[in-house]
Simulated assay, not measured.
Amino acid sequence: MSDPLPLEPPDAHPLEPVEERLARRLERGEVGAGARSRRRAASLLHRLARYDRAVFRSVAQMQTPLLDEPLRRASVFANFSKPWFLVAGVVALLGGPLGRRAAATGLAAIGTASLVVNQPMKRAGERRRPDRDDLGVPHERRVSMPSSTSFPSGHSASAAAFAVAVGDVLPALRLPLRVAASVVGFSRVYTGVHYPADVLVGATSGAVLGRLVSRAARRTGFLPE
């Protein structure tokens, strides 16, 4: 069976995707490991890059016009973490002392995720944004293309960090917040501004950081055990 997408020439896009760049470093012997291990790792990275683009194309080709406007709006509304600041305000206003602490913990998680993902991780990834024309994203669902690098997704990281941190404090909100975070993450692929791997890594990083922030808040006594 042939690969779902052809490999690009090695120097066609020096910053895209991150898997290909790492694979070429392995192939050139720039990473210390045995030759056989480097070949296996490089092959896996090439395969992951192709699958990533294949999934992106599959989402782009979805015939779901009823989702275009809702997901486009969700993607735009998630800029600057607006949904999570809104939820934090409502939780702080209506949730009593524990709600205020949960809101503060969630905002701290967003700040931590933004600092980690939007600075060192994006700089290390250096992945260009998807070419929506080449990959077939319909114009009706597109949003403005961010100027930052693509890997990982800051929107997904902030959403996951807030959902996990607040959900740890207020379990009743765990499911709705995680569903909302998932919608935001999917909307970033659907509108063509991120590859699936960007969202997956961003969400995973955000979830881990959100959990660490909530645990730190408990250990310092800010949250009850």
Rank of each mutant, 00 (worst) to 15 (best):
R50E: 12
A78T: 13
M62Y: 07
F80Q: 12
A41N: 01
P83Q: 02
L71E: 02
A60E: 06
R25P: 00
N79P: 04
R53L: 13
A54F: 09
L45Y: 05
R36F: 12
A54Y: 09
R40Q: 09
F85A: 02
F77S: 11
Q63R: 15
S75L: 02
Y51S: 09
D52S: 03
R72S: 08
D52E: 03
R39N: 06
G29H: 09
W84E: 10
S43V: 08
F85K: 01
D68A: 11
R36G: 08
A74T: 15
L45I: 08
Q61C: 06
V55S: 04
Q63V: 05
R25D: 12
E27N: 05
M62A: 15
A41V: 10
W84A: 07
M62E: 11
A33M: 15
L45V: 07
R73Q: 14
D68V: 09
G34C: 02
Q63F: 08
S81C: 12
L26K: 00
D52Y: 05
F80E: 11
A60W: 07
R39S: 09
Q61P: 03
R47Y: 15
Q63K: 10
F80M: 12
G34H: 04
L26Q: 00
V55W: 02
L67W: 03
L67S: 06
E27G: 11
P65I: 14
S81L: 05
L26I: 06
L71S: 02
R36K: 07
T64D: 12
A41G: 02
Q61L: 11
S81M: 08
E27F: 01
V55P: 02
A60S: 11
S43K: 12
K82G: 04
G34W: 07
R53T: 07
E30Y: 03
P83A: 03
G32F: 12
L45H: 06
G34S: 09
T64H: 11
A42T: 09
L44R: 13
G32L: 10
Q63Y: 09
P70H: 05
A78F: 02
Y51E: 12
F85D: 00
A49L: 04
R47A: 15
R39F: 06
R53W: 04
E27V: 10
A41L: 13
A54I: 08
E69M: 10
P70F: 06
R50K: 10
M62P: 06
P65A: 14
R73A: 15
L44C: 13
V76E: 09
L26F: 01
L44I: 15
L71M: 04
H46C: 03
M62D: 10
V31A: 01
Q61T: 07
H46W: 09
S37P: 01
R72W: 00
R57A: 14
A49T: 06
R50N: 07
R25A: 13
G29P: 08
L71F: 04
R38Y: 04
D68T: 10
R38E: 03
D68R: 07
A78P: 08
L66T: 13
F85I: 08
V31M: 00
G34N: 02
A42H: 06
K82Y: 13
V55L: 10
V59W: 00
G29F: 13
V59G: 03
D52Q: 03
